[in-house]
Design a protein around this nucleic acid. Sequence first.
DNA 1: AATGAATGAGGGTTCATTCAT
DNA 2: GATGAATGAACCCTCATTCAT
Lengths: 202, 202, 202, 202
Amino acid sequence: MGKIDENKKRKKETLFNSAYELFLSKGINSTAISDIVEKAGVAKGTFYLYFKDKYDIRNKLIVHKTHELFRAAKSALDDAQVSGLDAQLIFIMDHIIDTLVVNIPLLNFISKNLVMGALRSVLLTGESTDADFYEIFLDMVSQDPYEYEDVDVMLFTIVELAGSAGYNSILYKEPLPIHQYKPFLYRSVRLIIDSHRVKNIS
Amino acid sequence: MGKIDENKKRKKETLFNSAYELFLSKGINSTAISDIVEKAGVAKGTFYLYFKDKYDIRNKLIVHKTHELFRAAKSALDDAQVSGLDAQLIFIMDHIIDTLVVNIPLLNFISKNLVMGALRSVLLTGESTDADFYEIFLDMVSQDPYEYEDVDVMLFTIVELAGSAGYNSILYKEPLPIHQYKPFLYRSVRLIIDSHRVKNIS
Amino acid sequence: MGKIDENKKRKKETLFNSAYELFLSKGINSTAISDIVEKAGVAKGTFYLYFKDKYDIRNKLIVHKTHELFRAAKSALDDAQVSGLDAQLIFIMDHIIDTLVVNIPLLNFISKNLVMGALRSVLLTGESTDADFYEIFLDMVSQDPYEYEDVDVMLFTIVELAGSAGYNSILYKEPLPIHQYKPFLYRSVRLIIDSHRVKNIS
Amino acid sequence: MGKIDENKKRKKETLFNSAYELFLSKGINSTAISDIVEKAGVAKGTFYLYFKDKYDIRNKLIVHKTHELFRAAKSALDDAQVSGLDAQLIFIMDHIIDTLVVNIPLLNFISKNLVMGALRSVLLTGESTDADFYEIFLDMVSQDPYEYEDVDVMLFTIVELAGSAGYNSILYKEPLPIHQYKPFLYRSVRLIIDSHRVKNIS
DNA sequence: AATGAATGAGGGTTCATTCAT
DNA sequence: GATGAATGAACCCTCATTCAT
């Protein structure tokens, strides 16, 4: 029985990987389900045993890949012993940007879906066995010496800014290539974080 | 001759409007060229006299509608006698957001393309006889009492932030509905503007 | 499994036959794939499971029909007990001509493609399970009491002459209708054959 | 008035030349009338003032180009002072083959239409102001010291053989490239000519 | 005579989805 | 569960031809 389930899982993963490679290389619109199953070496009907349609597998891929990006960044952060919420957030941001700079197809794929859209899906789908990234962020916030108000808003604003501006800067090198834009981006992020700090008047 | 050209222009506009309505109501992917021409009351081949394909007309529509948004906002700004670069930029932003809040389909249509992608197109296509919005921005900057450095970067950052965060806030009401998020957004914008001011040490 | 394969074969043959009849009656250019599938009673997409496009099925048909012509002629030759290479080749030629005289549409279809173009395809496609006609010819040559040099060239010249001149004579009855032209054609063929005979000077 | 007629003639020739270049480079099927008129710099409707359709202009082009080939060959023959019908016919053949070897697109264009089909058109269309090639051939025959019977048949057989075998040999280099095949071709031609000679038994 | 905008039938091709095996 | 042949709607795009100007 375990063997059968293993087989099923392997089949699903093969489809997953095949779709991923095709989405990156040919784009989603140009990838047919027949392409995916051919690359995966399974029959067409099999696809429908595991996924509802092309957009189902696409969404699951985006969530999965976004997770991977954050997980790798968080893991590096843990190794790096960075202190201070702003430094930590920027570290994560920087790690993700550096990953995407050398993987433009992936950037294009998750592109602007990177941000809230994907995070929302992550939160909504109970499938994920991964740690919840939202909680990880809250953790980081709570461990900072400063106190913050409207944390949701702060995280949202930062993620949107970094996602959108980063995407365009990497892809179009306008108004500056990403390595030149980074200082400005990070300065803005620090300002936003700072603006959410609760300043004791005492 | 004038009559023929007039006819051509009218036909192109009819196609433009038909496509616009269909894109908003059915989405781009679900809109077939045959839908567009049927609604416009012209033959299929006629479409191809004016546009290369569906994506050509889509791009031109995005540029056009983005233009309209900015033009209306700028016009209102001129009437409103607002002074100060930050107040002016926020006025424009606010005007556009208020327009889009009550026109979600339009928001979805130009969605994230609103930002640099569209502006880039606007700048690149020489078709537009409208005033160049980039120059309008530069004008506003130059007339402000303060001096600014890296104006390109400043505008880019603001547009990206407002576009991306505004889009999600309007659409998903997360983390807050847009009318509650606005104060945060505008505070961030002011911080970004401020960070680009050249402070005289004297 | 055998049933499915049988079904596939039957379907392919139905398409083949439908295309053949339509090509003969309406011509290739005027035959749409939708005509073929309609006549065959299958869905449009099915066509593309078996053939790349209209020209793929056309080529395969030409090869197939050319094969049939030669096979029938060879079979008749075997029954007729004709001796002598020249007599044998002319017998085959004559048989094919007589067949085509009463099947002008077929003549027009394979027309000038009859010749090397088709034979080349036959040789190149490994699909055929039929005996290789080129080898049959070589066999006939080797069993003749005379010895021949440049057999390839000889066969080529004969096939080209017979194909081209025969086609025009049958179709346009110019300069003579085929039954009057035959003596001239066969005389030329005999001369060509003779010119390739190795004459022992001894 | 002469000017207008000149203009008309020039327009027709421009269309002619444009079609020729496009037919050679893109093939007839892939050449649209809109391509032709665009290249010619005239309006679409103008095409229909001079030609019935694409096939009308194609046929006229084939006739024209075939004429040119023969005219050039005949002109060279006149300069070369060749005597003997067989030598003269082979000279013409050789000249045409050498021209086509270095102009494969032209070969493909007139290809097998080179032969009787085109000659027939030449004879049928009264448009041509050129000397009638058929008569030129008859002239050559009559000036030969030998006497010939069934001259029509002889010319037909030679033209068909040379056209068909030459085409394939040039294009596919099978069974031999044309320069190696020529001796065989010309030997066959000489045999055919010889077989039409009236031999006095005296 | 010349134009070229408009037509719209028509053809080729794709592909998500089904279902009998 | 797995297969993959079959489907046929859907869609894009071309292009010969017309005709008002």
